[in-house]
Design a protein around this nucleic acid. Structure first.
Length: 612
DNA sequence: AGCGGAATGT
DNA sequence: ACATTCCGCT
């Protein structure tokens, strides 16, 4: 619709709004769903089921009713609600689980965790790990969570602020009440009441369940960790029924829940290709947005994750200000975390090393989605053009161009990609990949920034070779007994990395540099460290995954179908992202008085109803 | 059931 | 932006 070529502005008006009142934001559907999910009261209508992040709406009408009540949209129905849900597909917040009615799956990698750290997918049950994935721990070998609690890692100094207390309070708030609402008492509108869903009731009910009360707020580590998908489970091989916590039994031991973090790549993402990563950013709409400092922590965490999980450096570009902890390998815990300057003075030169300017990647990541319908329309007007089926390819092309340009900018060292100046389409790294290593393609997926790579790769794969599912993990060893064959490899896009080994972050192969840091003591942490056998002494760096090559993988089994549909890729974010830095900066600049802010934020958190 | 375009609203 | 409402197509 909008005329693209217009001289117009890139951003919509709202984009310019300063902050618009954060508190005013309405609850988003996914938030609401999450809330329902975490309450047993609603298990009859919606509950976690299946893989991590997967939930089923048992009573669509009821859910719709609740949602409608919350939004004061009495006419809401499942059809409409589902439409809203469908919009999340593009954002990759949600996916539909094919073959299962009313079943959807959250992509916790993205936002959710970050924005909603309290959710406890496993709450459903009592131990039922259904939705509680076995924790990435298994992955210990591969992805080990940072030693001390993440919060420490992120910012020790302010740790107190985010201390458990505040979180728990938030959690509490979340826990109660909020699901329903307009009625809250006053008004007549009590659709919800009938179900005894009212706020007040909810509270009462809680105690009802004995076990429930036993469990504090659902903030345990476990809970949090559970959220991070595990990959292991995919193809049916779900690890143990018991949620293992990365720290062992300690779920209760630690008070401070890890606030943000590791979320990323570990889980199964969607395989959806597109989406540049901007989504990772702060999450605008979330009511959970934290104060600047929080944000900062989050960013740092994210950054770390990038390193830890070998994500593409690209992700960092969005947060230039963030200080990146030293690059760490999964094996080693974060060393100096204790004192990290919370503020970021220097930006970390990740990939491109470049530096100075923050956004090396300016290209827009997403290809504009061709609308299908439009196509048909177009046909009508213009006459028939390509078949709809081919559309996907077309989109890939366009995106290819973007990608290539980005790469070019960054990768100086490696081959000269398209020095030839060829069109931007496919890019080179692949060749590298192939030559260097067999690709480890798993099917899992990941997400985050790679999507475009994925698309890219997938296309490539299709053309050249099919991916294989075996993965060899270097880190196969397990520590703590937690096991779980790491089936996930993270996926990262080395596309970017390979090319230009950053100074700091030596290329895996040569890197000895890393060795120095690794072990540094980690200090306080080791909460649960089981006695004894320390974790495996770090795997030799050499083994560290050469980040090279990895592809993204898709979520589940059925991915194929989905894969085919890459088409969409809506151009959600793209616009401003090039600069990507914007808000971060501002936030960083004013990191003071965060505590106050934080509290305030907490206060705002309530999802409570708003007036109707 | 589910998808997704389009118009519309906040 | 994030829905809500319609609605035609699978």
């Amino acid at each position: 619709m909008k005329t693209p070529g217009e001289t117009g502005f890139a951003f919509p008006e709202w984009a310019y709004k300063p902050e618009s009142s954060p508190g005013s934001r309405q609850i988003q559907l996914w938030h609401f769903i999450l809330e329902l999910l975490r309450k047993e009261e609603y298990h009859d209508v919606i509950a976690w089921q299946g893989d991590y992040g997967e939930f089923v709406i048992k009573d669509p009408d009821e859910v719709a009713r609740l949602w409608g009540a919350r939004k004061c949209k009495p006419q809401m129905n499942y059809d409409k609600l589902s439409r809203a849900l469908r919009y999340y597909y593009n954002k990759r917040i949600l996916h539909k689980t094919k073959g299962k009615r009313f079943t959807y799956k959250f992509n916790f990698n993205k936002l959710v965790l970050v924005n909603y750290p309290f959710i406890d997918m496993g709450s459903t049950g009592v131990g039922v790990p259904q939705s509680a994935p076995p924790v990435p721990t298994g992955g210990v070998s591969h992805f080990r969570f940072p030693p001390s609690t993440p919060s420490e890692v992120l910012s020790p100094s302010s740790e107190e602020l985010r201390s458990p207390g505040s979180f728990s309070s938030m959690a509490r708030r979340l826990a109660r009440g909020s699901v329903s609402d307009c009625s809250d008492g006053t008004s007549a509108n009590s659709e919800i009441d009938e179900g005894s869903l009212g706020v007040g009731t909810a509270e009462e009910r809680v105690p009802e369940r004995g076990f429930r009360s036993a469990v504090p707020p659902r903030l345990t580590h476990d809970a949090l960790y559970r959220m991070y998908g595990n990959h292991g489970g995919h193809r049916g091989h779900r690890a143990h029924p018991e949620p293992l916590s990365p720290f062992g039994p300690a779920g209760s031991g630690l008070l401070a829940p890890p606030p943000l973090s590791p979320a990323l790549p570990v889980t199964a993402g969607t395989h959806l290709p597109y989406t540049p990563s901007p989504t990772l950013s702060p999450m605008p709409g979330s009511i959970f947005s934290f104060s600047a400092e929080d944000m900062q922590r989050y960013l740092q965490a994210h950054t770390q994750s990038v390193y830890n999980y070998h994500l593409s450096p690209r992700a960092l570009f969005h947060y230039p200000n963030v200080v990146v902890p030293q690059p760490q390998r999964p094996d080693k815990p974060l060393p100096t975390t204790t004192e990290r300057p919370s503020v970021l003075a220097h930006s970390y030169p990740l990939a491109p090393a470049d530096d100075t300017h923050h956004t090396p990647f300016k290209f827009k990541l997403q290809p504009p989605p061709p609308g299908r319908k439009q196509q048909r329309e177009a046909q009508g007007h213009q006459g028939s053009l390509g078949s709809s089926s081919s559309s996907a390819l077309g989109s890939s092309l366009s995106f290819g161009s973007d990608l290539s340009s980005g790469i070019v900018s960054n990768s100086s060292s490696s081959g000269s990609l398209n020095s030839t100046g060829l069109p931007k389409i496919k890019v080179e790294p692949i060749s590298d990949i192939e030559s260097e290593e067999e690709v480890e393609v798993t099917d899992i997926s990941d997400e985050e920034g790679d999507e475009r790579d994925e698309e890219f790769f997938s296309a490539h794969r299709r053309n050249h070779h099919h991916h294989q599912h075996h993965h060899h993990h270097i880190f196969g060893h397990q520590s703590n007994g937690i096991s779980a064959p790491p089936q996930y490899d993270d996926s990262e896009e080395d596309v970017f990395k390979a090319p230009a080994p950053p100074p700091l972050f030596g290329p895996p192969s040569s890197s000895s540099s890393r060795a120095g840091m690794p072990v540094i003591k980690s200090e306080p942490d080791t909460p649960t460290t089981p006695s004894g056998h320390g974790h495996a002494p770090l795997p030799s760096p050499s083994q560290c995954i050469p980040l090279k090559l990895r592809f993204k993988r898709r979520w589940d089994q059925e991915q194929h179908t989905e894969e085919a549909e890459d088409k969409k890729v809506r151009g959600d974010k793209k616009n401003g992202e090039g600069s990507g830095v914007e808000m971060e900066e501002s936030e960083s600049s004013a990191p003071h008085k965060l505590s106050a802010e934080l509290h305030r934020a907490a206060a705002q958190l309530s999802l409570e109803n708003k007036d109707c």
